[in-house]
Design a protein around this nucleic acid. Structure first.
Lengths: 136, 136
DNA sequence: GCAAACTGTATCTATATTGGTTACATATGG
DNA sequence: CCATATGTAACCAATATAGATACAGTTTGC
């Protein structure tokens, strides 16, 4: 939904778009959109203005926004999860496994981050245009 | 939990380990362990035997088990999720965005898969041994 | 000044997922 | 035969997410 919203904003090039309008494109409720916009705003990707002619707009050019930023803006969690339970203190494996998995999780995270960093919002716009979607 | 279980099995080298024993190391309930073992068994990574001396054991050498197989065995879902709602038929962007995101999701998936394929269960055992955990 | 059209946010509901637990049928070694 | 396993169903609790309603605060344009 977040990338959908951002591409919509990009296609509107700086004209503020209302959450209702975005919601109808995403096919959801305006409040859901505003919540996502709130996350994107905290991450500095969009700017919103209140009032009659208000709405959301990108705060940077699409070529300066990577999908990694989008991902981290709306989904703070890691990809993999540790066992939330305490380790069994009588078991050496149980006490050590977490530190081992940590290094694995980190490299997986780096792999995803690298991949997403290589994708810019402007790339998505390009792909949309190739499919005939050029404005909205 | 799944990797924890598998490393535990590896440290026991082919001696069947009961779900209760594994559960105490993972600090959870035996049924939870058996559910995970069921997934791992479907994926061909472990073999379980019932009866008094039963339990679970690896069905392959740890050097022949990649973390990618483990991941796919217990978590069939994709990393990223599409907007579950139908597209708004009146909106060209809404109708097209999914196919664009699909290619992004696929390359992200490939990146994770590649990373996890490069990690073998035996690598984890190595790391554990370096930290002083050699049996259990 | 004021109505219209926004945002931001609180609150509530529905739903899905997950882990944990109990219970029990079934298998098997000694 | 019986102790000890697995496999699995059923249920509960906790958590997360989307959606919906409601409303206070902001801003524009008349």
């Amino acid at each position: 939904m977040a990338t959908h919203i951002l591409t919509s904003l990009a296609l509107h090039r700086d004209k503020p778009v209302s959450s209702s309008h975005l919601a109808s494109s995403v096919n959801t409720n305006p409040v859901v959109v505003r919540r996502i916009l709130g996350d994107l705003q905290k991450a500095g990707l969009v700017k919103t203005t209140a009032g009659k002619t208000g709405g959301a707009a990108l705060s940077r050019s699409p070529s300066k926004i990577t999908l990694d930023e989008v991902y981290k803006a709306v989904d703070a969690a890691e990809i993999f999860a540790f066992n939330p339970n305490d380790p069994n203190a009588h078991c050496p494996l149980s006490c050590t496994i977490k530190s081992v998995l940590e290094t694995v999780f980190q490299s997986a995270d780096r792999a995803i981050t690298k991949e997403l960093k290589s994708r810019k919002l402007s790339d998505l716009i390009e792909m949309l245009k190739k499919r005939g979607v050029s404005n909205e």
